[in-house]
Write a protein that binds this DNA or RNA. Structure first.
Lengths: 237, 237
DNA sequence: GTATTATTAGAGTATATACTCTAGGTAGTC
DNA sequence: GACTACCTAGAGTATATACTCTAATAATAC
């Protein structure tokens, strides 16, 4: 019930249904484990039908990636004319993790996706650059807002990269840290504990004035370790 | 010349040759792209021969993982009876990234590996726990040595997790950030720039006495952005 | 030397996967 | 009611992949 949503509305065009179902299946089972035949079967259409709408599997993935790109670019459009406050920061963090969740298959086995599709590789590269620039700008504008201590450019760049690494790989970590069972089921709530990790990173740079507030915000995302799974043997203290 | 080593010594037992060549091929091409037939062909032995020595591909991977585990456990054996100094820290960082390099295929598409092999999943989980504990202990002992400010347990745990995320995913980032070409060729030198990122993370916690030295150490690993590839169009600034 | 065990070759197989091809249906237009 | 553009079905294919089976060869023990 947790890991399933309904879609494939009767009113939707086949092409859109393919995109939507592909995303859903990719997210749940991993791109590697979802074949074009699976997608067709899931939609109860023929493989030929699927290939009428898309030249190949890569094209489906590429189109989904472009949606993702658009979404994140939209979220990370930083206002130029004013400093940022804590609400802004919360919004950025929440939005980014929401996007990550909706398109989570992309960050699983990304390397193989990029190896198979050069368009995707160069697009993703530029996407990364844009995101890093956005993160850096957020830091800058948070400093303007008196929330973070101002930092030299080089340090800010390195910090932004660390944030990027944590954000994009938190999901993968959760999957590997997850119990003995299949890694299919994971909740958005768990994913957002990544925000705790990002705020941990920022903590030393928060100005004394805002320390309390940021600590409180961070606390809201603290991982709740005990009994979040129904049945789990205690394996490590 | 950079991405190739010779092995498959004539004196070596077939079983060991299989392990060694598998590791080499996995590292260079990714586990997904290397079949048991490839491994056999590479060694100029028959598939039957390979399957005489290993029940299946998973067993090969599992055994390689156990080597990796042993190596890292050996590196991360923290002395109980004394604080740590800067040389210790350098050693740990260098060693961990060396290990990461030698077994780099493991951290590519790890999720799929874990999904396919339950032994690996639970072993890896415990391995992660041990590493996180080791990182935390290193921080503790660096504080004892007066290099880092002492920190409350909870913060140290979160910081350790951030270090783990950066260390284990730095390679993947480099691969995705790499130019238009195939991601096969990547150097140990580039990988070690991950140390710069880890030290960036620790920087705010370094005591004033050691700040200079740590900054210098960090500088040694600073990424050298311009012209490290033969021909590369300038795409961003 | 012969029996036994360890090792190897190499053809072969079951299954899967991405994708193709032909033929046919539907909807709108004149 | 024929023409056209769009859409769909479904059988089929080339290739790959993990793995098996049988038989032969080398090594070792007695």
């Amino acid at each position: 019930m947790n890991c399933k949503t309904t879609n494939a509305d009767e009113l939707m065009k086949t092409r859109d249904k393919i995109l939507l179902s592909s995303l859903e299946l990719f997210n749940e089972q991993g791109e590697r484990n979802v074949t074009t035949n699976h997608i067709a079967a899931y939609l109860a259409i023929s493989p030929g039908n699927l290939y009428y709408h898309f030249r190949n599997k890569s094209d489906i993935i590429y189109e989904i990636f472009q949606e993702y790109e658009k979404l994140v670019d939209y979220y990370l459009d930083i206002p130029e004319n004013r400093p940022l406050n804590l609400d802004d920061m919360t919004f950025y963090l929440e939005s980014v993790f929401d996007g990550l969740w909706s398109y989570r298959f992309l960050h699983r086995d990304l390397e193989n996706l990029l190896d198979r599709d050069q368009r995707l590789r160069s697009d993703y590269r530029e996407f990364t650059d844009r995101c890093l620039a956005a993160i850096s700008k957020i830091f800058e504008k948070l400093a303007e807002g008196g929330i973070l201590e101002p930092q030299p450019d080089a340090l800010r760049a390195a910090m932004s990269l660390n944030v990027w690494l944590i954000v994009t790989n938190w999901m993968a970590f959760l999957k590997t840290a997850h119990g003995e069972k299949a890694s299919a089921c994971l909740t958005l709530h768990e994913l957002k504990q990544g925000i705790y990790q990002v705020l941990t990173l920022e903590l030393p740079y928060v100005t004394p004035v805002y320390r309390e507030q940021v600590m409180e915000l961070r606390e809201r995302y603290r991982p709740t370790m005990p009994e979040q799974e129904d049945e789990r043997e205690v394996s490590a203290g």
